[in-house]
Computed example of a mutant assay.
Amino acid sequence: MNHRTPHIIFEANKHYELGKLKGNQILYDFDKILEYLDAKGKLLFGDKFKIYIEDRNILYKLCNYQIRDYHTCKKLGVDLKKGILLSGPVGCGKTSLMKLIRYITPHYKAYEMIPTRNVTFAFNHIGYTTIQQYGDSRFYCFDDLGVEPTGRFFGKDCNVIGEVLLSRYELFVNHRIKTHGTTNLNAQELEERYGNRVRSRMRELFNLIGFDKGSRDKRK
């Protein structure tokens, strides 16, 4: 990737031009972004991967957020200051899309995908330093919020991800460091899992972007 042409991405001996340069601004073409995401998805996840037409509206929001198109995001009700919480039923493609959209902006710092169960397993092994670790200034997307097991360290239970989210909220308020996430749960289920205080902070941390309840399981 040439930093002077971040809209042109090379993959497997082919180049994808995601838009045009106008001065120091990139005018992105959404259809060309989708073409690239389809190709990149096949490289990452195998030849069976595809971009589904019914996901176009979700992708439009995610892509405009990722390229930081302020005016389009404002029309869509998406706040660029907040992170993304992508929700939807099991198998609808949440994790794959959050892994993918990082690649359309190689000139921006990418977030790291972290399965929530891994955070809990680390807590069970080394304790509260895990919460401090994920409450640092790095950029994360926590995958599968709400379905991780309860943490347990030296006989004491801990809602590990709930504590991590409270730490991430402090980072957001004080330093504008964003956090992303994916979840299969709805708002009420998240509140039952994490409590009212964490759910309240999540409203401030995240833009909620959701698949329809009837979205197909793409793993079948």
Rank of each mutant, 00 (worst) to 15 (best):
L100N: 06
G155S: 04
K61A: 13
M113I: 14
M98H: 08
N124S: 08
C141Q: 02
R216S: 10
R203W: 00
C63R: 01
Y169V: 02
H3W: 01
I131N: 04
F172K: 02
T95V: 04
Q132C: 00
E191W: 01
T105A: 05
G181M: 07
D217P: 09
R56K: 14
F142A: 03
R201L: 09
I101H: 03
Y140A: 03
L27S: 13
G23E: 12
K48M: 07
L208E: 14
H125I: 00
K22W: 02
Q132W: 00
Q133I: 01
K74N: 11
K32I: 01
E35G: 00
T183M: 05
G91V: 09
F121T: 10
I161K: 04
F10C: 03
L37Y: 07
F139Y: 15
G83W: 02
G46C: 05
H180W: 13
L100I: 11
K20Y: 12
Q132L: 11
T120A: 14
G210S: 15
S87Q: 06
T116P: 07
K218S: 02
T182F: 06
N207W: 10
L80I: 11
Q133T: 13
L86A: 06
Y36L: 07
R138P: 01
G91Y: 07
H125P: 00
L171C: 10
E17F: 03
Y108L: 15
G135K: 05
Q188I: 07
R152W: 00
F121Y: 06
I58F: 09
C158Q: 12
E192H: 08
H180I: 00
E170M: 12
Y52L: 12
T72L: 09
G146V: 10
K99N: 15
E17M: 11
M98S: 11
H125E: 15
I101S: 05
A187F: 09
C73I: 10
